[in-house]
Structure formats: structure tokens, C-alpha cells
Design a protein around this nucleic acid. Structure first.
Lengths: 197, 197
DNA sequence: ATACGGTTTAACCATTTGGTTAGTAAATGT
DNA sequence: ACATTTACTAACCAAATGGTTAAACCGTAT
């Protein structure tokens, strides 16, 4: 593993746990097991290191989502695939959703510029497809944006609020993961059931 | 408005926007229109000021939720009431969910101690009630904790991820609020529909 | 062997930040 | 009227923090 990779991984861990403002360059250096000056040697400054981590995290997920939403499949299949692959991905990166929400909230200007990127999640095609399937009589006449919000909510929220969820319903890490495994299929079933005519 | 109130309100605004780590005492003082030393005169230090804000925010919401979940009503009515009153509350405090998730994530030790408080959201009774209604044949045989998670997800997520949501599906503040108004009833309808036998 | 390039570090610096202090102004009690 | 507490501020301080520098280290080509 190159030094740059060591730093990057350390930065991902620390930023995801503490956020941009809470993260300390020294802590990242310690986590990477190298001298703090190397951070600046490799990534210039905190902001750029952060951007590298954020872009990577988000940029890995967005194309996956877009591939699914922009494929040729029907709405039902897209919902099934999305929930399954999103949950699989996030189980491997459990702090990602809370991290993205946090930085979105603290630093909207920076994050927003990122939404003009081609790597951003772009559900336009999916939304028009929903309209089409409603007109075709496949789906009940629901608001496409509400449907999309439902899908995201059911999928993302448990991870974003992971710590709170564990605290409120009193479950361990393994019970949590087991519940998320269940959700890989149960979310799609429930949503499809509620919108199919 | 007393000076203490001015500080408290200013602190709420700044903490909710920037989080604990990102908030600056000077910024809070400026927002309140008073000298920075007053913050320490009234609230001792940053941590205590933050705790006051956090406890207040969470402590206002938790009893409302508990009142609903611990009432004598049936599961369906509880779901209806919860979504409606939660959304009403959060429309007035739009940054609260993201704020809570953020601090939960950054500072789990502190927040967890708060979950032994009697003011915490306590869904135990609601969970057993769900089991009872399943055995009574009113509800389909679902996992009560998954149901609770569904309810929270659909209700809380759109607010927690507000800024991202607005960016991804391209809606204005007023469109967002209108969608949330719709959700006051639509979430309950959908969930009830998916669990009633 | 040695000069040279990139890599890595210890020590240092400037600024920011939470917090303190000492003193002033304004109520409040006597 | 005067003393005393309370509310408030400007100036200051120590620690933390992001960032820099100059020197050391190390592989490698000459």
C-alpha cells in the first residue's frame, strides 16, 4: 500500500467518524501511521484531502445507482435491484450515508457544485418511466417523486440513523446487519405491493 | 427576550447549521448580538451550551412521540398520529433531524447517555402491541422492529437528507414543504395498507 | 563513491479558538 | 446616598490546529 493510499484510507475513516470540522489532521496522520507533513506533501491541505475522500465515496455509489435507474428494465425490477445493491454497498461502508448527510448540511455550497457533475445521482429517466407506467396502467396514480423518496427513505435512513436506531430499538451490530439483510428484499416487496395496480 | 434566551436561540441556529465541531463561539455571540464572554457567563462553556440546545431539541420531540406510542389507541391510529405530528413538528424545525443524526454519529458516547433518560423515545410498548395485533389477526405477520423502522424511515429521512433530496429531484423549498404536507397522510396510508390483513 | 531525485520527518510558525480576567455599567438593596 | 450584587464588555491568554521549512533518508543512475 502506497503512502498516499494509507493517508487516503486513514482520512476516510477519520472524516466519516468526525466530519470535516471535527477531523484533525494529526489524527489522520496517526491513523495512517505517518508524519503529519506527509498529508500536506500528498494532498496539499485539509480541504483537498476531504474533497478526495468525499468525491471517492460519493462517486463510487452514484454510477451504480445511475446504471440501475437508467437501464432498460421495468420500474419493479429497478426498485428490486436498487434496494439490493444499495444495501449491499452500504453494509460495506456503514458510515457513508450519515457522512454525506452531514457534509451536505454543513457545507451545502461545496456539495451542491458536485451536483452538476455527471457522476451525480440522476433519477430523471426513472421519474419519467414511472409516469409512463402509470399511464400504461401498470402502476397506481402516485406521485413519482414521492415514490422515489419512499424508496430512498426506506433504504438509506436505517444506515444514516444507524446509531440512533440501535439505541432506540435495542439491537446489536449483528442484529442490525441481519435486519438490513432482510430489507434487501422486503423493502422492494412492500413498495411494489403498494404501487402495483 | 432575556440575554440567556438570545444566546440559546443563536446557539440553536449555529449548532444546527454547523454541528458541534463546526460551530464557533464567536459566531454564536455575533448571531445573538452580544459579547462572547456572555456565552461563558451564562452557559459556562461550549459543551454545556451545546448540551442545553441538544437536550432541548430532542427533549421536546421525544415526549410527543412517547405520548402517541404509549396511548390506548390501535396500531393504525398510532401510525397516523405519529407521521402527522412528527412531520408538523419537523417542518417547524427543519434542521433538527440532520443535526441529531450528525451529533449521534460524531459523539455517540455523549448521546448514548441520553438514551437512559426517561425523556428518550421508548417504543417498547408499541412493539409489543404490534405483536399482539399480529396474533389477533389484525396485522400480517411482519417483524415489528422492521415496521417501526419503516415508519421512522419514511417520516424522518426526507428531512434529514433535505438538502440532498432537493438537489437530486430538483425541487424548491415550497415544493418540498408541499410534498411533506402530502406525506402527513400518505405515509400512514401506504404503511397501513401494506400490513393490514 | 557520489551526486541527485523523490520521500519522510522533527521542529517550527501563524492563526484560530475556547476560555479568562479585570474592570465598567446598571440594577437592587439598605 | 452608598454599598453590593448582577449584567455586560474589551482586552487578553494558553492551547490547539492547519500548515511550512529545512534537513535527513534512501534508492538509483552515473
Amino acid at each position: 500500500m502506497t503512502t498516499e493510499e494509507k493517508i487516503f484510507n486513514a482520512a476516510r475513516i477519520v472524516f466519516q467518524k468526525k466530519g470535516f470540522a471535527g477531523a484533525r489532521m494529526q489524527e489522520i496522520a496517526d491513523e495512517a501511521g505517518i508524519n503529519k507533513a506527509m498529508l500536506h506533501y500528498c494532498f496539499k491541505n485539509k480541504q483537498l484531502l476531504f474533497e478526495a475522500v468525499f468525491m471517492n465515496a460519493f462517486g463510487e455509489l452514484a454510477p451504480q445507482i445511475n446504471d440501475i435507474f437508467n437501464s432498460e428494465e421495468c420500474v419493479f425490477d429497478k426498485i428490486k435491484k436498487f434496494t439490493k445493491s444499495y444495501i449491499s454497498f452500504v453494509i460495506q461502508n456503514p458510515f457513508l450515508p450519515a457522512f454525506v448527510i452531514q457534509e451536505m448540511n454543513n457545507n451545502p455550497e461545496f456539495v451542491m457544485q458536485f451536483f452538476n457533475n455527471e457522476k451525480r445521482p440522476n433519477p430523471e429517466l426513472f421519474l419519467t418511466q414511472i409516469k409512463t407506467e402509470i399511464q400504461a396502467g401498470i402502476l397506481k396514480p402516485i406521485n413519482p417523486k414521492q415514490l422515489l423518496l419512499d424508496i430512498f427513505s426506506m433504504t438509506v435512513f436505517p444506515f444514516a440513523a444507524q446509531i440512533m436506531v440501535k439505541g432506540i430499538i435495542h439491537i446489536s451490530d449483528s442484529e442490525f446487519n441481519q435486519m438490513m439483510e432482510e430489507r434487501k428484499t422486503s423493502i422492494a416487496e412492500q413498495i411494489i405491493n403498494s404501487i402495483k395496480k
